[in-house]
Structure formats: C-alpha cells, structure tokens
C-alpha cells in the first residue's frame, strides 16, 4: 500500500488565457517536510488551493490520504490543517476564542477541544495574550495566532502557505522551529515559500516551481547536483592580468572565471580542495590578494541555472 499523503497527477489550472499550473505532478510521503519553492506567481498557492479543493481545476487527479479529494471530502479535510498566506482570524474574537472557533470546526468534544486549544496556545507561545483581540497583537504574534488556528486540531497533514511573509527574524525562527517540532510529532508538512533559505533549512524534499511547472524535484543535495556548479572560490582585492586569468581557467574543474573590480570568482564543477589550487597559483604568480572564501551552491543557483533568472526576480 502506498504511503503517499498527497498525490497530484497532471494538474492543470487555467485563469482564462494564463496557465497557472501546467501539468504538475507531485507525490508527498508520510512524515515528510515537503517544500514548494518558487518565485511569486509561480503557481505554488494555486496548486495548494487545488489540492484543498478550494479551486476548480481544468485537468488532473488529486488524492489525499489515498482518496480522491473533492469539495465534499469532509472526512479527509478533518485531518488537514491549513495556515494561509494572509492572516485569517476574526477581528472581534480574542486569541483564545479564535483558536477555539477553528478548532471547534474539527473537534466537537468540548473537553478535548479545550485541551487542544490550550496546547496550541502554549505551542505558539501566546499564553500571555489569550484575552487579546488580534488588533492588539504585533505582526509576529498575529502570525503565531494564525498558525495556532490551523494546527490546534492536531492534523495529520499540515499545509503552510508562506507563513513567514512580513515576519521579523526572531518570530520567523520560532515558526520554523515549530514546524519541525510538529513534523517530529508525526505531521506531514507541505511548506511553500519563495525564501530559499527557509526551504533549505526545514524541508526534506523540495519541488522548484516556475510558471506553473515543476522544474526540479528532490532533496536539496539532489537539486544542487543537478547543476554544473559545485563550488565558487572568491578572492577579494586581487590584481590579475589576462595571463593569470588564463592560467586559472586552465585549472582542473574550472568552468568559469569572472574578474571585475578587483574581485575574482572562480567557478568549479567538481573536485576537492579547489581553494588550495587557486591560492597556490596566485602565490606562484606573485599576485597579492585579500580575503579568500568559498561559496557552495544554493537553491537560488539551482533556480538561476535552470530558469536563467534569480529566484526573487
């Protein structure tokens, strides 16, 4: 029996002329923290809305917990928790009442609900704000309330749609730690973001989306192996002539050298100890240099190489 929590096959969603999701395929296994990474407008949220049956889609199959997901699949929805991109709470209800309201849509047993609500409050650290109205909370606290409303009923599948937008670094770290904790407690997580650092930090598998398509899928290591670059050696305050640059280009595994404003960048597509080879050469040629450091490829490099544009374009 398959342990796929979510399975999307050949999903197509059009907004009139625009294809928002283009023959998208996805399989998310139980216990994963799965990242959907892509720039704004790449189709991440639309895909999630289709998975949740909030949106009509033109083509494809969506299964959740091994069953076809439809608008009326209430037994499946019972085990899903969603944290929307925008804060979705009642302005007129207090922190406690908001969490209780949303938890009550899933848990009818009052005693159990009370316990779950208290646990959710504790989990997001809002114990001191139980009786506060949302307008009295800071942006970070509001985001935490938003999360508490989505997780209080202890769902098996948690969907976070860019939960850290406009959040300060301290709250962001708390949110990310919380997501990992929920995963440790047994929840499968789908996490969408256009912040590659977050996705790298918490996701075990990642799909990179662009223009509604999945352009790469795998662990972060697998994704990084998909591109030519394995390491970039950067040398600051260096004065190179064309001869030296030519020699650097001839080093093993070097596929590109960029020299501008006394800064040298040497790109390698494999090999070990590359930085030593570069420094050896500079010393031999009697070229003075300043700080030296290496950069490993990021998901942004993966995106850049696969699409020809920056992730945050």
């Amino acid at each position: 029996m398959s342990n796929n929590v979510v399975r999307v096959e050949n999903l197509v969603k059009r907004y009139k002329e625009l294809i928002a999701v283009d023959h998208f395929n996805l399989e998310i296994k139980e216990g994963e923290v799965f990242g959907l990474l892509g720039p704004n407008g790449s189709g991440k949220s639309t895909t999630l809305h289709c998975i949740l049956s909030l949106l009509k889609y033109d083509k494809g199959t969506i299964e959740v917990f091994g069953e076809k997901m439809t608008e009326n699949s209430y037994h499946l929805k019972k085990d899903i928790g969603v944290i929307m991109q925008n804060v979705a709470v009642f302005e007129e209800l207090t922190v406690y009442q908001n969490i209780d309201y949303f938890c009550g849509l899933y848990i009818t047993d009052k005693k159990k609900r009370k316990q779950y609500v208290e646990e959710a409050i504790q989990f997001v650290g809002l114990e001191d704000y139980k009786k506060f109205l949302p307008k009295k909370l800071s942006g970070g606290l509001l985001r935490r309330l938003n999360i508490a409303c989505g997780i209080a009923h202890k769902p098996k599948l948690l969907i976070f749609d860019e939960p850290t937008v406009a959040v300060d670094p301290q709250s962001r770290n708390k949110i990310l730690e919380g997501i990992l904790e929920l995963n440790r407690q047994g929840a499968t997580v789908i996490y969408t973001s256009h912040y590659m650092e977050e996705v790298e930090q918490i996701c075990s598998r990642i799909a990179i989306m662009d223009k509604g398509k999945s352009i790469a899928l795998g662990t972060k290591e697998e994704l990084k192996q998909m591109i030519k670059n394995s390491e970039t050696v950067c040398v600051e305050k260096v004065e190179c002539n064309d001869e030296v640059i030519g020699k650097i280009k001839n080093l093993k595994y070097v596929y590109d050298v960029v020299y501008a404003e006394k800064e040298l960048k040497v790109c390698f597509s494999g090999g070990n100890h590359n930085v030593i080879h570069v420094l050896d050469l500079l010393q031999k040629e009697d070229v003075p240099f300043g700080r030296v450091y290496t950069e490993l490829p990021t998901l942004n490099d993966v995106f850049l190489e696969l699409t020809g544009k920056e992730l945050r374009d």
Partner: peptide
C-alpha cells in the same frame, strides 16, 4: 465564500459544509 476573503477560505478547508 472562499473567493471572497481569507477567513472564508479557511472555513472552506474545514470539514464543515
């Protein structure tokens, strides 16, 4: 109505018709 506001969208994903 899920297409009207985020609160409605959140209600729309709940197991309540």
């Amino acid at each position: 109505q899920a297409n009207m506001n985020v609160l409605a969208a959140r209600k729309g994903v709940s197991p309540v018709s």
